[in-house]
Design a protein around this nucleic acid. Structure first.
Lengths: 352, 352
DNA sequence: CTGTTAGCGCGTTCAG
DNA sequence: CTGAACGCGCTAACAG
């Protein structure tokens, strides 16, 4: 593998001249440039990024740490991050913590050792072990999607409280009075905030705490399934379910199907997070849609601003709005519960 | 950010001693080790991976280059690669070429510059521009999934020809006589081999070239949709479709639904590639399932053997078997014209 | 068991 | 416009 030195020797110049040609810095006479370029081509020379990074103390690499890489919400965020980063010449390392704080810290260690320039983090919990580690090593951080109480950092997230309020309000407007919320762990701000929005909507409608049905679980399908099973045996059985994220909704739908409860005839369901086009052929879920791509993009841009811009300044929090999209999984409650409706099954069998 | 030097000074030893403690190499007295470890903890020292890699000339990193990161077939391969690599202390860089040869070469350039230790490549086409580039820079390569004619390299792939043969034979056994195959570009070995298997099955059943309906397209949903639209207007209209991969099948299903053609009552469909559990609630597609995880795992292990083992040896080709899984998307044709063949019963009693 | 020397391949700094 | 010297942080190779 040839080096700067080989090129310099072949071209009859110093290594610095070659370096300048490659990085387009400083003035070079056209002839020398041509000669150097010829030597580069002849040798098939490729700069050693490691040496460059070691010397320049910048890797031009960001890391994005998410809690579930299989969730389209996070892959969409990832696309936003990558687009913004690549536009400025930065690479992105993707890391998946599976909602585990231990994994998160492990990854942060690796990222520090690899000397990434900055970390975009979706924290697994609201405790801040990894944030502290990052601060100790002076690594810039932007927190995404979830608020962290303890730390003063840049944050980009959506207004979960308002989103949840809109979703539940929609159900109330349809006439529902008994609504269950199935959400993630109480240690995660998005779960807590969505419950807050749920409560506000109920309270505003004059529905007291006695009509609350709040289940904290995990943001995954298994948990959604399990919580729904519990909801189905509750007395009184709710006429509507608010699923705290898309995977919880998957589990809920599966449980409802198994129990022969039709959507929306038997139970209405509204979901936080939309699914990207292509995941389902015929979107029928009523959802609160977050601007996932925009979250990723703005987070990356904020980071790059911190990295290249001179004024560090105060930590900034960017809150993006979410939007209620009404489709066919919500309807007014019915007295009698329909036994089976096959349309759901046809729908779920056809991914796209 | 503290360095080896800082640690050495604080512990009152040389940098080499610290290096040995960290890498667990050579003999160190327990006391010095303890002293060094204390210094490391006190400073929160984290080794600089860049410097280490530059010096040792090994990055302990593999790259996996695939043509479609959104395809579960490739993400499953990726899991196999990652598991095998991590078990031996290697990291993996994932790269997505979108079936573009230009992107592929671009990525290979980056990988050379980053000095990855080896490249696992799913080539976009059977031309070998990127393979040549890799060879020039003496980077070890293992080719996955697709055969490359021109090059002598290690390869790990499934037997597409036999898999396709089994799929089409299954359709023939069910009584189908008019079967269309929708597959990828003719520049990709998997597309070509699947056509070969399709032909062999037809020929063996005494069905001549006049009954062949072969469509080359792209391995994606849009192409599957478009090819199916064409198939639906063909004369005679086939009673069964063999989709060359899962995404082509998605497009086909969408087109069939739109045209009001039921599966399998109107048209049977068999697909190369299964979908992982969780993508669909109720698997109903008859598929040829490839051992995707195993492909990734074996490819990584072959690479690691080349990297650490001493004998380079001859290029090796590992061919894995695929398996027909009969579900509910295939059935005998309903036309009165098509008679049921006797071998059908034998087959149903003896599913492959 | 531990230290010394000598780079890995580049870019920064300063001097021509 | 170009070059010489130096060092980023670490480890291979050899001494002790």
């Amino acid at each position: 593998m040839s080096t700067l030195n080989d090129v310099a020797r072949l071209a009859g110049v110093s290594t610095m001249t070659v370096s300048r040609v490659i990085n387009d810095s400083g003035y070079i006479s056209p002839e020398t440039r041509a000669r150097v370029n010829r030597a580069i081509a002849e040798l098939g020379y490729m700069p050693n990024v490691l040496a460059r990074q070691l010397r320049s103390k910048r890797t031009k690499t960001l890391a994005l740490v998410v809690t579930d890489i299989a969730n389209p919400f996070f892959t969409t965020i990832a696309r936003g991050v990558e687009d913004a980063a690549r536009a400025r010449g930065y690479a992105v390392m993707f890391c998946n913590t599976d909602e585990s704080e231990a994994e998160e810290i492990e990854y942060v260690r690796v990222l520090i050792q690899r000397r990434v320039d900055g970390v975009l983090l979706v924290p697994a919990t609201d405790s801040s072990g990894s944030l502290q580690l990052l601060r100790e090593h002076a690594l810039p951080v932007v927190v995404l999607d979830r608020h962290v109480r303890s730390a003063l950092v840049d944050e980009v997230l959506t207004d979960s409280e308002t989103g949840a309020y809109l979703a539940v309000r929609h159900l109330i407007d349809l006439g529902h009075r008994s609504i269950a919320i199935l959400t993630g762990p109480a240690t995660v701000s998005t779960a807590v905030d969505r419950v807050a929005g749920y409560r506000r909507a109920l309270a505003e409608a004059g529905l007291g705490a006695e009509s609350e049905q709040i289940l904290f679980g995990e943001f995954n399908e298994a948990s959604g399934y399990e919580m729904t099973r519990r909801v189905l045996t509750a007395q009184p059985r709710p006429t509507a379910i608010f699923a705290g994220n898309n995977f919880i909704a998957f589990g809920a739908i599966q449980a409802l199907r198994q129990a022969g409860v039709a959507i929306p005839d038997g139970i209405s369901i509204v979901v936080f997070d939309d699914l990207p086009q292509g995941w389902v052929l015929d979107p029928f879920l009523t959802v609160v849609s977050q601007p996932a791509y925009e979250i990723g993009k703005q987070a990356a841009e904020l980071m790059l601003e911190r990295l290249t811009g001179d004024p560090p300044g105060e930590p900034r929090t960017i809150v993006l709005a979410s939007e209620l999209i009404v489709r066919r999984s919500t309807a007014p409650p019915r007295r009698e519960v329909a036994a089976t409706v096959p349309s759901l099954r046809a729908h779920m069998e056809n991914p796209a």
